[in-house]
């Protein structure tokens, strides 16, 4: 099993100038270390839709890599997106699924089935590549090669769960910021087009 922090660090080392779409627990860890907030899209106002929004970005800027840091519970709510992504064949899209087997933010309730082989599902849906990791050294050493391959690629990461003991004290402040955040990313992408 891999800690969130180690997994996020390993992905961040390979980021370069990729757009990064994050959701749930991954967002907080990513924002702490990201050096390109103008290329970060934290989905705070639409659980499950990270993979779909990332697909739109990937198709809209095919010359730039797009990473999506999805959650297992989030993906389960939008599982058909695997097929939609595969149908569009975005070579620049790398889809990370953080598997903790639970709804961590709401206190750690188990998923309907906590043991799902997301890499196998991605291949069955038509992704070009899929991998699964539960060891951080292996993840870190394989990522450069994996991310140099044309996608769409799904990378299933088994992480150590961090259930929120008291639940999350939501301020919804991130929802208020999202329109400006997306416009900043839009501007950044247009400037580099």
């Amino acid at each position: 099993m891999i800690s969130y922090r180690d997994a996020i660090d390993a992905i961040h080392r390979e980021r370069n100038d990729a757009v990064c779409v994050t959701t749930m627990t991954q967002t907080g860890y990513w924002y702490k270390i990201s050096k390109r907030p103008d290329l970060d899209i934290g989905i705070s106002n639409g659980m499950s839709k990270a993979s779909s929004l990332a697909l739109g970005v990937a198709l809209g800027v095919p010359g730039r890599r797009v990473l999506v840091l999805d959650g297992d519970g989030s993906l389960l709510m939008n599982l058909g997106s695997l097929v939609t992504v595969a149908g569009q064949k975005p070579e620049n899209m790398h889809h990370f699924v953080f598997d903790n087997g639970m709804y961590a933010i709401t206190g750690g309730q188990p998923l309907p089935n906590p043991k799902v082989d997301y890499a196998a599902m991605a291949i069955a849906a038509g992704y070009a590549n899929a991998y699964a990791f539960d060891d951080v050294e292996e993840l870190a050493s394989e990522l450069p090669r994996i991310m140099s391959q044309p996608g769409p690629t799904l990378i299933h990461i088994s992480v150590i769960a961090e259930p929120a003991a008291e639940g999350v004290d939501q301020t919804w402040e991130s929802n208020r910021k999202m329109p400006a955040q997306l416009r900043a990313t839009r501007t950044a992408l247009q400037q580099r087009a």
């Binding site: 839709k49 779909s52 198709l59 809209g60 997306l182 839009r186």
Partner: peptide
């Protein structure tokens, strides 16, 4: 470009992503 989706709920977030990308 026509983008078929598996379920209607994907359509708006995909469109949002395309818009962020300047499309």
């Amino acid at each position: 470009h026509v983008i078929p989706v598996s379920r209607e709920g994907e359509a708006i977030p995909i469109a949002a992503g395309l818009w962020v990308a300047g499309q």
